[in-house]
């Protein structure tokens, strides 16, 4: 379901990894088509949103299909703020080690949050750790 009004819209979806691609394209189309954003901004949006949704489904909602992921997008003149929330118990983002240190380079997981932090202009979490806010330019 997508509702667009007053520079803000919301998407709510059940936990289903196969839906991530469609939802990402829907949000990108709604958020960055007018005015058209640069290729780099579109890539950044697709990447951070896909990673945040996957984290919400896999780690937050523990893959339970009955649990929901909520995406809220605020459109400002010069930026957009995307919030992704899950129904899990949350986590401590400060406890996640970067994957670029030598002994973690060969790890097979743990790069999603790192990519979000590197590609978004600003990233914050709620105290519980089950909502992430990510800021990107609209250009």
């Amino acid at each position: 379901m997508v509702r667009a009004a007053s520079g803000r819209f919301r998407v709510v979806l059940a936990t289903d990894l196969t839906r991530i691609g469609v939802v990402v394209e829907t949000v990108a189309s709604c958020a960055l088509s007018t005015p058209p954003a640069s290729r780099q901004t579109l890539f950044r949006l697709r990447t951070i949103l896909a990673e945040a949704i996957a984290n919400a489904m896999v780690y937050g909602n523990q893959g339970e299909a009955s649990r929901l992921v909520t995406i809220e997008v605020e459109l400002h003149d010069d930026r957009l703020v995307i919030a992704v929330s899950d129904e899990g118990v949350g986590f401590d983002p400060a406890a996640i080690a970067p994957p670029t240190v030598e002994d973690r380079l060969g790890a097979t997981r743990g790069r999603g949050l790192f990519l979000i932090r590197r590609l978004a202009d600003h990233v914050t979490f709620n105290d519980r750790g089950n909502t992430i806010w990510m800021t990107l330019p609209r250009s």
Binding site: T47, E51, G106, T108, R109, G110, G112, L115
Partner: peptide, 12 residues
Amino acid sequence: YIDSSGLGALVS
């Protein structure tokens, strides 16, 4: 597109 899970799969 490649996501972080895909990157992890390549490492594996």
